[in-house]
Design a protein around this nucleic acid. Structure first.
Length: 259
DNA sequence: ATGACCAATGGAATTGGA
């Protein structure tokens, strides 16, 4: 089962680029972030025509997550628990049943800039809520895949110019510590089990010719529960997508599970 | 000043991204 995560930066603006990648990469499951659309505005038919089931959790203008799957999705849950006042659409869960059942999460972790400030406080509070939810999901002891835009640069080797990010919410010690605390619940970071080398990036800003200079950062991650980690056979980053027509500023990250 | 961007909203300029 091939599972990918992709921050598409707007479903309406990205439909052609997304379909071109879908037809080439042929993932079984896609975890989407930043659909920037309400549920009713999501062009679900073009994906259904290609054999995907579609579950969305959108909002007007910003954020929004979705799951595409060739196999039916069950037990869909929308929203990150822990704060009934939080209306931002950044979290959706579903179960897909292949050879075994896999619990999926598509997440769009808050950016948090500027830091310090209320947006940074929201980011850290959101990560604390995520840690609590992940602990509950791990207690289920079923294969678990958490994919998304984490808006966290885990380590200096995950940025072309780490010195440029030291004051940024994506790289501040508090953000990295909160990310480590979630991983340390017992998750495996898929890309790093396959390739420990520096120079792996998933985001290049539109500004400053960042792509042309390979001035990237690695902030899109696939974290696996122990039962899913045991099924991992491959992982990669579809870097070439950044060179396509009207690209997102992020590229897809994928895993292959024996599931 | 990523001195040089992009998407959505709404119908110009602002907000948010990272």
């Amino acid at each position: 089962m091939k599972i990918a995560t992709f921050n598409i930066n707007g479903i309406k603006a990205r439909i052609e680029a997304l379909l071109a990648w879908l037809d080439a990469a042929r993932p079984d499951v896609v975890l989407l972030q930043e659909i920037k659309s309400v549920d009713e505005g999501f062009p679900r038919e073009v994906f259904e025509e290609r054999g995907y089931f579609v579950e969305t959790h959108g909002q007007k203008g910003f954020n929004g997550v979705a799951i595409l799957s060739r196999l039916p999705l069950e037990d869909v849950e929308r929203g990150l628990p822990g704060d009934d006042a939080d209306a931002q659409a950044r979290w959706i869960e579903a179960t897909v049943v292949g050879k075994v059942a896999v619990r999926l999460v598509a997440l769009y972790l808050p950016n948090g800039n500027p830091a310090p400030g209320p947006k940074f406080d929201y980011k850290l509070a959101w990560m604390a809520r995520m840690k609590a939810r992940v602990a509950d999901l791990l207690a289920e002891e079923v294969p678990l895949v958490l994919g998304g835009d984490y808006n966290v640069i885990p380590a200096p080797i995950d940025a072309a110019r780490p010195e440029a990010w030291v004051e940024d919410a994506l790289f501040r010690p508090e953000s990295r510590a909160a990310f480590r605390a979630i991983v340390n619940l017992g998750l495996t970071e898929a890309i790093r089990t396959r390739d420990p080398r520096p120079g792996l990036y998933t985001f290049w800003d539109y500004q400053g010719a960042a792509w042309q200079k390979n001035d990237g950062i690695r902030i899109d991650h696939l974290l696996l529960g122990p039962q899913a980690a045991d099924l991992l056979s491959d992982a990669g980053i579809d870097k070439a997508v950044r060179d396509g027509d009207k690209p997102s500023d992020h590229v897809p990250v994928w895993i292959e599970l024996e599931a």
